[in-house]
Amino acid sequence: MPETPAAPPGETVLTVSGLRKSFGRFMALSGVDLKVRAGEVRAIIGPNGAGKTTLINVLGGQLAGDAGRVVFAGKNLMNKYPHQVSAMGVGRTFQISSTFRRMTVYENMLSAHNAASGRWFSLSTALLRKMHGAVMEDLESIHLAELAGRVVDDISHGDRKRLEFGMVLASRPRLLLLDEPTAGMGLQERHDLIDLMLREIRERKITLLFVEHDIDIVFRAADYITVMANGKVFAEGLPGEISDNQEVQEIYLGVK
């Protein structure tokens, strides 16, 4: 499906080293080191204030880091503008789903294709009509074709989360950053959504880095888990290793 084949599994595509970010006197990231392999599904967990969302925001270009290095697929990703990050093949969703609320579901997906087409400045309506097939196909794959004509303000929270995810996929990213993809949803809805996401991500061989509070979801989805605390990487390992780690249980899982 993706035009550029993903790097062979096992090869490191994202390297973060010594990443720092502070807000005034509060140090949100105090030297993060992280390596993510191509095609991997990596979860980032940790207590509130550990710096998970800040990390995603610095990687996505929404925040500027103070120091450190970020390299993605051999290129510098540190302190780029969001649209430059996007152009390098990195897509993201937000903790509170971020869509175009006054547009219809259809127009949201059309916008995503329009942005990905590289001809966003064109005046040709024919170009939009040509995208129609792909737009409907993408809406089908996230089960939103039925709601195509609805204004996004009027659809449910879960539907908006799915739409946002589908819009990000439309830009054919190689790396996806998801900030709490299932936040605020019901139990069954969460599992359905994460299964849908995993299916699409595996099919397209996308590398995934996601922040999640729901431990169930984390162990269901992740190949590898990074635990953050106080702005640093606290522990890393396979799901089994993390669930057995005494220290992680103490700081995060609340087991004494």
Partner: peptide
């Protein structure tokens, strides 16, 4: 109602999402 217009509307409605999609 052209691709450019859709871009203008996207940036106008949600700068953050539009930026993450690649629009400066």
């Amino acid at each position: 109602h052209s691709p450019l217009g859709l871009t203008i509307r996207a940036v106008g409605q949600n700068t953050i999402r539009a930026g993450a999609m690649g629009h400066g």
